[in-house]
Design a protein around this nucleic acid. Structure first.
Length: 553
DNA sequence: AACAGTATCAACCGCCAATGT
DNA sequence: TACATTGGCGGTTGATACTGT
């Protein structure tokens, strides 16, 4: 008959444990094999029993502990107790500065892989590291400090740039391989999956697997402190948000964009980790863009009244070890920007080969919107121009165009103006919307600038909680992959001239003729620019935030 | 001193993959 | 091959300690 042995009878239960014992007797431990297993804090006597058992029988076979040692603990509990508290060589006490830095470094590379991180920290347990990260580091971020020390980011990226593998990486190659898939290459994974779903389903309402979501969030540098996109936002609204970029036009004129750092998620994370500012359109200064020292007063997690905070994983510098060098160079800022620019102009071929329609790099929401706009434009002009875009393609553009067309075809199947990726894709991008938690140091370098008279409209749902004394800031993002990829897509297209005209029509349809005119004009300039950057950025500079998907018929 | 809010820590839970039967 | 068991992992929760009012 099952029973819960009174530890006092065995000399196990101490006075201090009486409450626990009573509690266990009340709601009971888990009954397992006729024995009610104890839960709650371990007593020293239990520890002694477990230690003795492990000395005799070694680790493992934890379920046998209960059977053979008289401990009324489940095997899992025994293993956990041993691993976290009883095993030899455990290092207790606060983390040293070196350990803290190492944790940050490891987290930057691994994300929430606590066990793997623990393997690099002798004497430390995954639980310790996890708790540490969830408390001290978060607090650090709330205080406005960069999550990852800049010097660490710099070092790590420089090492990657030179193909150097430090001891940290050596022990984790297998995982690194995985990371390469789950970090910068995550979008491919996710969107491959999404595409697969699309084959079966006409509409993918959600990514069912939270892990996929979290992976993408990791990869795209989301942060629970940098993100306040409500997960329950109406799809349409979220899609609209995902399509409303906020590029400062100064980025074109000056040849420098504060968001050049963010041309891919890895680079974004670099920037984020460096405490680079986020661009927060200030709804109160209608046409201006301001760099806000957002979320820097430590209250970011307190959320805001109107927007449900989405609990997400902390950002990570999960860059692909081998690819990063070609993706971006982290060195003093100008070099970084140059590298990113270089990437923008010459994205790694592998990314195009490996990714497909489902990859946000050459497809995604912006493509979909553009296509939609094109369709509208075509209808508006009573001319079917659908084949024209493909007709301008050159053989070298097959890959891009095919994937684009593929997406367009699929996109057409979604008559509700929802992303072909469904809510998930939208929300994924939305959820990845970074709102920097770091104090801007670039306010003076990059003064606020108008958006060509376009009124920035901020809705309640667009508003994120802002630090005390500040007004809610819009979440409209400048680091959106869809924006970035759109820039790429437009830039790379050999049939760009026609596409530009075509796109201009689309923009005219969506946003008005003025913008389209500006668009064409700027494209003419951009096409001669060695920067090769103006097209995407300018076009998105001028898309008014007031445009809503709901406006699109 | 009392109370509330927050931080910290230990432990549990559910899921999943590997392994065994 | 199917099912059960085991171990590992990450997320979450609850108790306690700490701090500020």
């Amino acid at each position: 008959m099952s029973h819960m042995t009174n530890e006092s009878e065995e000399g196990v239960l101490s006075k201090d444990d009486s409450v626990t014992q009573l509690s266990d007797e009340c709601d009971g431990g888990r009954e397992d094999g006729g024995v009610i297993l104890k839960k709650g804090p371990w007593t020293s006597a239990e520890d002694a029993i477990l230690v003795e058992y492990v000395k005799k029988h070694g680790e493992g076979n934890w379920n046998a502990v209960q059977k053979h040692s008289g401990l009324f603990r489940c095997g899992k509990s025994c293993r956990l107790r041993w691993a976290n508290h009883l095993r030899p060589n455990l290092k207790k006490g606060a983390f040293t500065a070196d350990e803290e830095q190492l944790i940050a470094e490891l987290h930057a590379k691994m994300g929430n892989k606590w066990a793997r991180m623990a393997s690099h920290l002798p004497g430390r347990t995954d639980n310790e590291i996890k708790n540490y990260w969830n408390t001290r580091i978060k607090r650090r971020q709330r205080a406005g400090l960069p999550l990852y020390p800049p010097e660490m980011c710099l070092q790590a990226l420089q090492e990657n740039q030179h193909g150097h593998k430090d001891s940290l990486n050596d022990g984790d190659r297998g995982h690194r391989g995985l990371l390469q898939k789950s970090s910068c290459n995550i979008p491919d994974v996710i969107f491959d999956s999404l595409k697969a779903n699309q084959v079966v389903l006409p509409y993918v309402p959600e990514i069912p697997d939270i892990s996929a979501n979290s992976i993408l969030l990791k990869g795209l540098g989301s942060s629970q402190y940098c993100n306040f996109m409500p997960s329950t936002f109406p799809r349409q609204k979220r899609l609209r948000e995902s399509l409303v970029p906020f590029f400062g036009s100064s980025s074109v004129r000056n040849g420098f964009s504060p968001f050049d750092h963010f041309q891919d998620d890895g680079c974004f994370k670099v920037g984020q980790s460096f405490g680079l500012p986020s661009l927060n359109p200030d709804p109160t200064s209608e046409n201006s863009l301001t760099f806000s020292p957002s979320l820097s007063n430590g209250n970011s997690s307190a959320s805001k009244p109107t927007v449900e905070a989405v609990k997400l994983e902390l950002p990570s510098l999960q860059y692909p070890e081998t690819d990063l060098g070609s993706w971006g160079t982290l060195s003093p800022l100008p070099s970084l920007l140059e590298s990113v620019d270089a990437f923008i102009q010459s994205p790694p071929p592998t990314s195009m080969q490996e990714s497909n329609c489902s990859s946000p790099r050459n497809s995604g929401l912006l493509d979909a919107l553009l296509h939609q706009a094109k369709t509208l434009s075509s209808a508006k002009n009573h001319s079917s121009d659908k084949s024209s875009s493909s007709s301008t393609e050159t053989p070298g553009d097959i890959a891009d165009s095919s994937t684009l067309n593929m997406c367009e075809t699929e996109w057409e199947e979604y008559a509700d103006h929802i992303s072909p990726f469904g809510h998930s894709a939208t929300s994924l991008f939305s959820d990845c919307t970074p709102v920097s938690a770091y104090v801007s140091t670039m306010d003076e370098q990059l003064p606020a600038e108008t958006l060509n008279g376009v009124i920035v409209k901020s809705e309640a749902g667009d508003e994120a909680w802002a630090p005390t004394g500040e007004k809610p800031v819009s979440l409209l993002s400048i680091t959106r992959p869809d924006v970035l990829l759109a820039s790429n897509w437009l830039e790379q297209s050999p049939g760009r001239v026609k596409n530009q005209a075509f796109t201009a029509d689309a923009i005219a349809t969506l946003f008005g003729d003025d913008l389209a005119t500006d668009y064409k004009h700027m494209n003419a300039e951009a096409s001669t620019s060695s920067q090769g950057w103006g097209l995407g950025s300018y076009s998105w500079n001028n898309i008014p935030a007031v445009c809503q998907m709901s406006d699109v018929p």
